[in-house]
C-alpha cells in the first residue's frame, strides 16, 4: 500500500487533548512540518505557553520549556542568547500573547529577537472556560461578556499583526487562517517563511493563525470554520503585514 500521508517526525505519538473541531491540532501539525522542512540540522527549542497549548511540550518532539503565562517571548529571548544558532519558537494563544504578555511580545519584536512566534488567535480564553480575550470580537459572547462584547463596556479588539508591523525589529509578520484547505496550505507556507527568516537571522517573526474554539464559542466545528471565514477575517484581515 502506498503511504500518502505521514505525521511529522517533530510530533510525538501522544494524542492531542484538544477538543473536537479545535484547530490547535492543525496549527501544531503545520508548525512541526515547517520545522521539519528546515532539515533538522540546526536543533530546535520550543516554548509552551499557559492556555490550551500548555501541554505543547507533550506534542512537539524537540526540546521545550514551559513558560509562565505571557512570558514566552522573554523565555525565548533568554534561550536564544544561550543558543543563538538554534531555532527558537514560542507557541502562544491570544490571552497569553495579547493580554498578560503584551509587553513581552512588543519588546521582543522591538528588540528584533531572532525568534519565531506562532500566535493562535481564537478570540477567547479556552483553557479557563470561555472568558473574553483581548481579541474577542465586538458582539461576540463570552462568559465575561455575556451580552456580547461592546466597545463602550469592554473596549475594542486588538490587532496584533498591524501593531507589530510598525516596529523596526519585526522582520516577518503575517496573519493566516485555517478555515479551509486552501487557507491551511497558505498558513503552512507562512509558518515556513517565518522560520526561514529566523534561519537567515533577519529578526523577529510572527504568524497569527485565526483559529476556532467550538467548545467555548458554543458552535459546531463546521459553524466555527464559517465564523472564522465570515466574521473573524473582517476584523482580522489575512495578509502579510511586514516582510523585510
Amino acid at each position: 500500500m502506498q503511504k500518502v500521508f505521514q505525521k511529522s517526525a517533530l510530533l510525538t505519538d501522544t494524542p492531542f487533548h484538544y477538543c473536537p473541531g479545535c484547530t490547535h491540532g492543525i496549527s501544531h501539525r503545520i508548525t512541526a512540518e515547517a520545522l521539519e522542512e528546515l532539515g533538522g540540522k540546526q536543533g530546535i527549542i520550543g516554548v509552551a505557553p499557559v492556555g490550551c497549548a500548555v501541554f505543547a511540550y507533550n506534542y512537539f518532539n524537540c526540546d521545550i520549556q514551559q513558560a509562565a503565562h505571557g512570558r514566552a517571548p522573554a523565555v525565548a529571548s533568554g534561550i536564544k542568547r544561550v543558543c543563538p544558532d538554534k531555532i527558537v519558537f514560542a507557541y502562544q494563544g491570544d490571552g497569553d500573547l495579547a493580554s498578560i504578555g503584551m509587553a513581552e511580545t512588543v519588546h521582543a519584536a522591538a528588540r528584533g529577537e531572532n525568534i519565531t512566534i506562532i500566535f493562535i488567535n481564537n478570540a477567547i480564553y479556552g483553557m479557563t472556560g470561555g472568558q473574553m480575550a483581548p481579541t474577542t470580537l465586538i458582539g461576540q459572547k463570552s462568559t465575561t461578556s455575556q451580552g456580547g462584547r461592546t466597545a463602550a463596556l469592554q473596549g475594542n479588539p486588538i490587532r496584533i499583526c498591524e501593531m507589530l508591523a510598525t516596529l523596526d525589529g519585526a522582520s516577518y509578520i503575517a496573519r493566516v487562517s485555517l478555515h479551509d484547505l486552501k487557507s491551511v496550505v497558505a498558513a503552512k507556507k507562512a509558518v515556513k517563511k517565518a522560520f526561514d527568516y529566523q534561519v537567515a537571522g533577519k529578526g523577529f517573526s510572527l504568524v497569527e493563525i485565526l483559529s476556532t474554539c467550538p467548545t467555548n464559542w458554543g458552535m459546531t466545528p463546521e459553524n466555527s470554520m464559517e465564523y472564522v471565514k465570515n466574521e473573524m477575517t473582517k476584523v482580522y484581515p489575512l495578509g502579510v503585514f511586514k516582510e523585510v
Binding site: 527549542i45 516554548v47 520549556q65 513558560a67 509562565a68 512570558r71 522573554a74 523565555v75 525565548a76 529571548s77 533568554g78 534561550i79 536564544k80 542568547r81 544561550v82 543558543c83 513581552e104
Partner: peptide, 9 residues
C-alpha cells in the same frame, strides 16, 4: 523570565 529561559538552556 529571560533568566528562566537562559538557565533552562
Amino acid at each position: 523570565n529571560m533568566v528562566y529561559g537562559a538557565a533552562g538552556a
